[in-house]
């Protein structure tokens, strides 16, 4: 009888990711409401997985091998396929991250399962999963239902809350002798602990009004005071001021942080689509008629080059 929810939990350098803990919490609340049990699975070289139990899943399985230090689509797929075998699982959830979005469709194809990607709501009824997912980068939402026996979903980071609900961990460590290295990560570049815009809780974003790449230091300073990430509009990415990995909008990332501070961004429709589901939006722009003010909770009409230094000063004061 398939009565279990499995959560794929990601680790980076042995540490469990916050976006995975959000998924753990959502799985625990769905399991309680609908009479399912829960299990978490993770892969790595050395993983401190007991933190998962602080969020309510006791049964934790860690697959361990020195070469699992980085993600490998082929290796992770084979391990998870073997883990799913046996028919005890009804659902598999993961965070909608570079790993979750790469791994789950592979498993879905192999098991002929349906999956919902990037869910912002997720429910269970008699037939299974129903979820809401932003489409057209947030210009609309699709409500969809999975109808296969085994059902998958990836959950958008920062939407579901990670809630502490401590239970006693029951850890199972499984040493994997050989892994499938058909796809092998040789190295990871530039993971200098920087928070990615797609996962950041606070984003300080800049547009053409920043007037040049050199002025983004103002945004980097504010982001670092706030513990957030720097984002960018498409215009400044296309101009080569910032990398595409920071682009927010329909051809970049769709984000839902707690706070989005838009600096010198007028608010093109494809940018607004990508950030308007943020909990709080603050806009700083010279043009009082800029479309960004129509989605902002708070706005300041003025020069970013006067306002940002003042903001940085004030925040520094509060923090010290």
């Amino acid at each position: 009888m398939a009565n279990k929810i499995l959560v794929f939990v990601e680790q980076v350098e042995g540490k469990i990711k916050k976006s995975s803990l959000e998924v753990v919490s959502k799985a625990v609340s769905l399991a309680e409401a609908h009479g399912y049990s829960t299990e978490a699975v993770t892969c790595g070289k050395e993983v401190d997985a007991s933190v998962i139990a602080e969020y309510g899943i006791a049964s934790i399985c860690c697959y361990v091998n020195n070469n699992l230090v980085h993600y490998s689509g082929s290796a992770y797929r084979d391990i998870l396929l073997a883990h799913l075998d046996g028919g005890e699982f009804r659902f598999l959830f993961a965070a909608n991250t570079s790993q979750g979005r790469d791994l789950l469709p592979r498993l879905a194809a192999r098991t002929n399962s349906g999956m919902l990607t990037d869910c912002t709501t997720l429910e269970i009824d008699e037939q299974g999963l129903t979820g809401t997912r932003p489409i057209f980068a947030g210009k609309a939402f699709e409500k969809a239902k999975v109808v296969s026996p085994l059902q998958f979903a990836t959950l958008r980071p920062n939407v579901f809350e990670a809630l502490k609900k401590p239970v006693t961990p029951e850890l199972t460590i499984k040493n994997v002798d050989t892994i499938n290295e058909a796809e092998k990560v040789l190295e990871v570049k530039g993971s200098d602990g920087k928070i990615d815009v797609a996962e950041a809780n606070i984003i300080v974003s800049g547009g053409r009004g920043m007037k040049g790449p050199e002025h983004f230091t103002l945004l980097e300073e504010l982001a670092s005071h706030l513990g957030g990430a720097v984002g960018a509009s498409r215009a400044v990415v296309d101009a080569g001021w910032r990398p595409h990995s920071e682009q927010v909008g329909q051809t970049g990332k769709t984000v839902s942080p707690s706070l989005y501070i838009a600096c010198g961004i007028s608010g093109a429709i494809q940018h607004l689509a990508g950030m308007s589901s943020s909990r709080y939006i603050v806009a700083i722009n010279k043009d009082k008629d800029a479309p960004i003010f129509s989605v902002a909770h708070y706005g300041i009409v003025g020069d970013v080059f006067e306002i940002l230094p003042a903001l940085n000063e004030e925040i520094k004061k509060i923090k010290s």
């Binding site: 980085h70 040789l186 993971s191």
Partner: peptide, 13 residues
Amino acid sequence: EREIEGGREVIQT
């Protein structure tokens, strides 16, 4: 090279 959160994986296949 594959884009991941905050960096890139260099993948051999």
